[in-house]
Simulated assay, not measured.
Amino acid sequence: MSEKRSITSRARITAIGSYVPERTLTNDDLEKMVDTSDEWIVPRTGIRERRIAGSDVFTSDLCIEAVRNMISEYQASTDDIDMILVATSTSDFPFPSVACQIQEQFGIPSAGTLDLSAACAGFVYGLNMADALVTSGLHRKVLVVGGETLSKVTDYTDRTTCILFGDAAGAALVERDENNPGFIHSCSGSDGRAGIHLYRTGLSGRMKGKVLSGDGNIVQNGREVFKIAVSTLTREVPRLLENAGISPDEVDWFIPHSANIRIIQAVCERIGFPMEKTLFSAEYYGNTSSATIPLALHQGVLEGKIKKGDTLLLYGFGGGFTHAGTLVRWTI
């Protein structure tokens, strides 16, 4: 695991936005497709609905709409963005990147572009990278986007996975501010040994000598993913807080990746953090991978829960296995 050590941030989040497609896929809808029910899904996942992109709508489209929403809500300027980071596992193409498509759409004159592949931890990785790029002086204004169209890589005959996933995007601006920085401390880590428990085949259909299934769709060993996620967050969240010199009582809101309500409940119980101070975006949007954290963050702002001066703990975990956390003081 890597930790950011003894570095004073010079960056803060200055704007946030999100977007979800119009089409809703309810648990009742899924009951007509596979052997499942609302009564079975909700207690096990916390998910009631998820949003699904149209057949001609892709990740770049959702990301562009999230950026537009951010611009509208905060009157944010994109002209002086000098780096675009997009976290996604479902890019429209291997290349050009989604980040390049965003740069073209908004006519941003001079920006580096990069797509990040860290699965459900991607947005937090993006924030941490943006903080590092701005604090180092290499960049001054970084656009961080997390977006997915997981419905396009979901097998809707597999009752164990099709109940989970949805489509969404979230965006945030990270800008230089030496007088009022917002980033407190961050960490990241991985365990490639567990990659076999959550994957999607690509150019290769083998891993560790094993022939993989799925034919390009998501394959998940839910039991193993649950154990890995709970053990990782139970270990790493207290470590992040300790290294930052912050007690759990000083955290106003915990915003973990919204994969499954049972995972979050188990983590909160083990680390002694109250669920009522935890934000969860999957109830009406499903597991949207890299978009769940910005979606929950934006919802919290819109609902008046997150207020200026609050201390937020964001923690993502996902396929790889990857994980990343950041402590942020909300400054807007």
Rank of each mutant, 00 (worst) to 15 (best):
I246H: 08
S258G: 13
M129L: 11
D310K: 02
R50S: 02
D92V: 11
F93E: 09
A121I: 01
W330Y: 12
S72G: 05
A244E: 13
A76D: 05
G17Y: 00
V124H: 06
K308H: 09
E303R: 13
S213T: 14
K4W: 13
D61Y: 11
A99G: 06
W330A: 08
F93K: 07
S89T: 15
S6F: 15
P181C: 12
D35S: 10
T90S: 08
P238D: 10
P294Y: 00
S55T: 15
V301A: 11
T326Y: 02
L116M: 07
A66P: 11
G126I: 03
L173W: 03
L312A: 09
Y315D: 04
L302Q: 15
G126W: 03
S281P: 08
A194C: 05
E303G: 06
A296N: 05
P256W: 08
G202W: 02
M129I: 12
R235W: 01
N260R: 07
S72H: 13
N179Y: 14
E175Y: 08
E224Y: 05
G166M: 14
K32A: 13
S247T: 15
W40L: 03
C63Y: 02
V124P: 11
S91Y: 10
D61S: 13
T135R: 06
Y125T: 02
I246N: 06
I163F: 01
F254D: 12
I261E: 06
L138K: 12
N69S: 15
E148S: 02
A111S: 07
Q299I: 07
I71K: 15
S247P: 07
D249C: 13
A76F: 12
Q75D: 14
E242H: 10
T161V: 01
R200P: 01
T88P: 10
E73N: 15
L203D: 01
K32F: 03
D191K: 09
N243A: 14
I218L: 07
N260P: 08
